[in-house]
Design a protein around this nucleic acid. Sequence first.
DNA 1: ATTAACGTTTACGTATACGTGAGGGTTGTG
DNA 2: CACAACCCTCACGTATACGTAAACGTTAAT
Lengths: 158, 158
Amino acid sequence: MSVTPPRSTEAPFLKIQEVASELGLTTRSIRYYEELGLLSPAARSDGSYRLYDASDIERLRFIKGLRDDAGFSLAEISQLLEDEAARVRSREAFSQTDDPAERRDIVVGALARVERQSRILREKINRLETMVEAVEARHRRLAARLADLDAGGTGEVR
Amino acid sequence: MSVTPPRSTEAPFLKIQEVASELGLTTRSIRYYEELGLLSPAARSDGSYRLYDASDIERLRFIKGLRDDAGFSLAEISQLLEDEAARVRSREAFSQTDDPAERRDIVVGALARVERQSRILREKINRLETMVEAVEARHRRLAARLADLDAGGTGEVR
DNA sequence: ATTAACGTTTACGTATACGTGAGGGTTGTG
DNA sequence: CACAACCCTCACGTATACGTAAACGTTAAT
């Protein structure tokens, strides 16, 4: 009677196709990202199947966001992820010392990287907003026209 | 005494290399965009040199913005430009009639296209802002750490 | 144990967005 | 009119980001 049985006991790992479906990617893309060093699966099965955990999926979601939403190239994404990795390493370095001077250097470095990431994204947003502004100005003029027509006018706004 | 003479009498037309330098594009890109139907030069010289006017340059600037800033593919840009062309045609159709019903139809169509453009851009912005938000949250935590360290603390925020 | 469904590596194919000549005209300045 | 500096049209080359198929191994259910 079991047509589609529950895929085993909800293991903490997902296989590549399961990840792909969940994120709307192809298995090829995921393997390709791995080839480029953007991520590597948390584990491999005995038969060397790639096994992904939650943080892998988060990372992939982030990559997909940067690619689809921001339009970054995989090279740029690689750079952003390396900054991210440097950030994590510096967190570890931070907790390895309790010398305030060393800690300060570490935090200052981390701040610089985060500010760089932030600036890259903000620049993109600003330029996008300039474009949206132009489009919405047209939208307002058209809406005014429509309102005028519906009020019995000629639609000759301005 | 004229070392670099004024490039003739400021003709209203620019040649391809002049346009390219001004916009930070290559001549190849400009020709390629023409190949894809994204624009065509306002005129050709007797010897069939491409000659661009101010509106051509505006159009190219728009294309470059969509490509660099928004990360749109040239296919998507083509779509947005076709919407733009439809908008211009509908403006003409609008002024060809004074029947309020016809005018209303035209304006409604134009509104739909503009809203589509706007929505595409806004979606992109929204997703970018979500990413920025995450980055800035980290930035705030780091800044707090730094402030704590500079105030003689341990930098152990939270 | 069998077997369908899925995974692995390897490798060649493809669409996009140009780069880079080749071979040959065009412009405009001396 | 000579000639450097552009421009033209092919046309092939290249980097990126995957698609697709071959040949073969793994998993898991029956």
